[in-house]
């Protein structure tokens, strides 16, 4: 996972609530077996509307996305995070996020910032009125600020997600340091738990 301390730049004001991952990356693109190259398909159907916000050249290359509550709800497809990442976005600010989407962001290395509605609305209006506005997301100090102004807000973040973001740590590697504890757990795990050992055998063909 890449290391992230601050994200500075413009934000794309996507002023919608309950944006589900089917909108972020429609199903027809989930057939790809690669992990990259999803950016050109992000918001595929919404982007057919020339007025859709990601088509606005004033926000081209913005590293931050602003959205309303429950962003990334629905399907667990991590392809949604890969698509947003591939658009060049590294931080998303919204009043709340879908649980699986937020976890996926933390694994890929995107910062999800939760701010109250009023603060998100302020940033949304500001970006709509003054697209050149520079927003600073600082992971270490857990703050969002508007460059050149006094506006600054604190946000909360899971301390371990923060640690991993600041150090670029992949958590498979971190967990593998505890292989002994996993082995110990397995040594006294109930023998009554099912397993799929017999799932290999007796392949049953359809008539």
């Amino acid at each position: 996972m890449r290391q992230i301390s601050t994200v500075t730049g413009q934000a794309i004001p996507l002023n919608r609530a309950d944006v589900d991952t089917d909108q972020i990356i429609p199903k027809q693109f989930l057939k790809r077996i690669e992990r990259s190259g999803f950016g050109e398909f992000a918001f595929f159907d919404w982007r057919k509307d020339p007025d859709f916000i990601t088509n606005d050249p004033r926000y081209k290359g913005a590293p931050i996305m602003l959205a309303q509550q429950n962003f990334g709800c629905g399907s667990s497809r991590e392809h949604a995070v890969w698509a947003i990442e591939d658009m060049g976005v590294t931080a998303i600010i919204a009043p709340s996020f879908g649980d699986i989407f937020r976890t996926n962001c933390s694994k890929v290395g995107l910062v999800t910032v939760e701010l109250p509605h009023d603060d998100v609305n302020y940033l949304m209006s500001r970006m709509e009125e003054l697209p050149s506005t520079q927003i600073v997301v600082d992971v270490a100090s857990q703050t969002v600020s508007v460059a050149g102004t006094d506006w600054k807000r604190q946000f909360s973040i899971d301390p371990f997600v923060k640690y991993r973001l600041l150090n670029g740590l992949d958590d498979v590697g971190l967990t593998m340091q505890h292989t002994d504890l996993i082995g110990e757990f397995e040594s006294h795990r109930s023998a009554l738990k099912p397993n799929t050992s017999n799932a290999f055998a007796n392949t049953v063909k359809t008539p």
């Binding site: 667990s76 497809r77 991590e78 392809h79 995070v81 699986i100 976890t103 996926n104 694994k107 890929v108 899971d158 371990f160 958590d171 498979v172 967990t175 593998m176 292989t179 996993i182 397995e186």
Partner: peptide, 21 residues
């Protein structure tokens, strides 16, 4: 029982565990 993303799929395949907040 809960849904997970592909990074977590890899985590479970490799370790049979999952960190949960």
């Amino acid at each position: 029982a809960f849904g997970i993303g592909t990074s977590e799929v890899e985590h479970v395949l490799a370790t049979q565990t999952l960190p949960q907040a």
